[in-house]
Amino acid sequence: MNEMKEMIAAVTACKGADFELQPLKIRQPQGDEVLVKVIATGMCHTDLIVRDQYYPVPLPAVLGHEGAGIIEAIGPNVTDLQVGDHVVLTYGYCGKCTQCNTGNPAYCAEFFGRNFSGADLEGHSAICTHDHAVVHDHFFAQSSFATHALSRENNTVKVTKDVPIELLGPLGCGIQTGAGACINALKVTPASSFVTWGAGAVGLSALLAAKVCGAAIIIAVDIVESRLELAKQLGATHVINSKTQDPVAAIKEITGGGINFALESTGRPEILKQGIDALGILGKIAVVGAPPLGTTAQFDVNDLLLGGKTILGVVEGSGSPKKFIPELVTLYQQGKFPFDQLVKFYAFDDINQAAIDSQIGVTLKPIIKIG
């Protein structure tokens, strides 16, 4: 067995349990793997729904999938990364299937196994307790709620050292998802109209991207006034509190008939129906919100048909992370994508408070400072 390295990780022991910091061991990188000293990791809605077992990831496990840090060691087959590189960790993909080979790694044929199985494809874990008990890992090919994480070269994205590395982790999932849904999937056009259903971190990332794309009407729908106020500060031309207004009627009035592009990030079927209803002719809605497996939604088929409307399922922003994440960093450096206004930092010891604040909406995007 390879030499094992000491580490501290936040372990999810069972369904709904608090994260518990524990001393563990992690093996050295093999093949095309890299070992990353994690500086900070974003907390995403997916971490929490897996903790609560909406998705059946085996527990106990180390979650965390928006890691950022510095490469500490590389496997013998790594070619384009080196020790000392600043990197953002993103989702796992095979790099060989039809989808990966056509620039669509988020739809990899092995996506679920590589991101949610709790082990590598052979069923092995890279981490264990000091008495050699298995702790499930390889969550999104990283498990980065830890001082160290193993990832593969293809899901380890080198970034500039000119931007604080502790800020960049959320680009690996949540921020990339919202921005990419606009830029890569919907392909929002100049002078068009855009609405985000939900003004959380993903929705507001999409809002920022819609502004980059040149949308003329940008609408945010939510029930939390502080989020709507932030949306206005970030570039929303209109905000709608759906507790006090009929959002479909309001959108149709603002746009003169219906919206061109929309993002649904709440994961609630009734909101998706409203989103479809509010589309104009040939309108498109991207669905990124993840409800429990098996959730169904209803809509008027003839409205969809006669309006030429499009419903797009979007995973991880539908882009190539090796290309898209550095592009988002460049936009941030140019002041065009100020996603730093969405985040709040927490100490590693405060990871459970970060989860609470995220769930009740006090914090849009927690980042756990680890290194």
Rank of each mutant, 00 (worst) to 15 (best):
M4W: 14
K5G: 00
M7H: 01
V11Q: 03
K15V: 14
K15M: 13
K15L: 13
D18T: 09
Q22D: 00
Q22K: 12
K25N: 14
Q28L: 15
I39L: 11
D47Q: 04
L48H: 08
I49G: 00
Y55S: 00
V57C: 14
L63T: 01
G67H: 05
A68K: 02
I71T: 05
L81D: 05
D85V: 04
C94H: 03
C100H: 01
N101C: 13
N101T: 12
N104I: 09
C108F: 10
A109Y: 12
F112E: 15
N115I: 05
F116M: 14
F116K: 08
G118T: 07
L121T: 09
H124N: 15
H124P: 00
H130K: 13
H132F: 14
A133D: 15
H136Y: 12
H136K: 10
H138A: 07
F139S: 04
F140I: 01
F145G: 00
T147A: 03
T147C: 06
K161G: 14
G169W: 06
A181V: 05
G200M: 05
A201S: 10
L207S: 00
A210N: 04
I217F: 10
I219C: 06
V224K: 14
R227N: 02
A236Q: 08
V239R: 01
I240K: 01
S242H: 11
K243T: 12
D246C: 06
P247M: 08
A249Y: 02
A249S: 12
G256L: 11
I259H: 05
A262N: 03
G267C: 07
I271H: 06
K273C: 14
Q274I: 04
G275M: 11
A278L: 09
K284A: 14
K284W: 10
P292A: 11
P292L: 06
G294T: 07
F299Y: 12
V301A: 15
D303C: 02
L304S: 07
E316C: 06
S318A: 15
E327Q: 15
L328C: 05
Q333E: 14
G335T: 11
G335Y: 13
D340G: 12
Q341V: 12
V343A: 11
F345T: 00
I351C: 03
I356W: 07
Q359I: 12
I360V: 15
G361P: 07
K365H: 08
P366H: 04
